[in-house]
Design a protein around this nucleic acid. Structure first.
Lengths: 138, 138
DNA sequence: CACCGTTGTAACCATTGTAGTTACTACACG
DNA sequence: CGTGTAGTAACTACAATGGTTACAACGGTG
């Protein structure tokens, strides 16, 4: 299966850098720490900006957090960069046969469980914020 | 992002059919209820067979469960069909820069949280078995 | 045994998401 | 104005997915 995109881990990396770094964080500087192309960083920072997590200064460069470090959770970051259709982690096969009792009823039953499982994961992500994470790499 | 493959929902559909159906479940019959190509069904049933969940009779056709309905959880099905590298739902970007304090330490910290989030989802899937699901479509 | 329906695969295709690259424009400041 | 940065568009390469056709292997039944 396709894993959840590394955009998420890169985004967390970006925000951590901005959080702990006193100096100006330019896209190229971040790209050096993440070890990837600056355009990748700019794309993801664009998503973080759109989500209202960071402020980016065009022209002169540099980024800063728009919220307090302990107000940004991993779920916020996940939601900012993992744009899925309808936010549904699980895919459901199209058009089960309504003539069949199983085909007719399985969708509602299974979708409910899928939603619960996804929610369990998201709740766990919501428990961790940037401060807690940054404290782990002293 | 790419959603979790519909193989999972189809696999649950297949097992539900086998569980509630008294007559022989052939691949073509199941394909009719799922509303897809029989080869898709055979591929997924092959995974379920390899996982030890079902027994399939070649030649004459027909499948049956190898475990009791309440001994097969959604997590069993998920693990049977969603084969990910190392079983890791989250992807982590390669080779953060070890020269940078953030790049050097973020991987361990973040991987730990990713593991917890994935585990939370899987634990939720493990709470539901085929009997409970089948009971929902009376 | 011959036939028939089924399972088990291999091969191929179109579509989509991902990650990366190059190139260019827009912007802010000294 | 010149420099360095952000913001994008366009393109490539690669992999997963879902689907399709085709064919071999298998197991009963007439």
């Amino acid at each position: 299966m396709k894993q959840i995109s590394s955009r998420f881990s890169i985004a967390v990396h970006i925000l951590s850098l901005i959080a702990v770094s006193s100096k100006d964080c330019t896209g190229d500087f971040i790209a050096g720490s993440v070890n990837t192309n600056p355009v990748i960083i700019r794309r993801i920072m664009g998503m973080l900006k759109k989500a209202g997590l960071v402020d980016i200064r065009p022209g002169v460069g540099g980024a800063s957090l728009l919220k307090d470090r302990d107000q940004i959770t991993l779920l916020d970051v996940y939601r900012a960069v993992e744009v899925i259709e309808d936010g549904q982690l699980f895919n459901f096969h199209d058009d089960p046969n309504p003539q069949c009792p199983v085909g007719r009823n399985i969708e509602a039953a299974l979708r409910s469980e899928m939603k619960e499982a996804q929610s369990a994961m998201e709740q766990r992500l919501a428990q961790v914020n940037l401060s807690q994470l940054a404290a782990q790499f002293v």
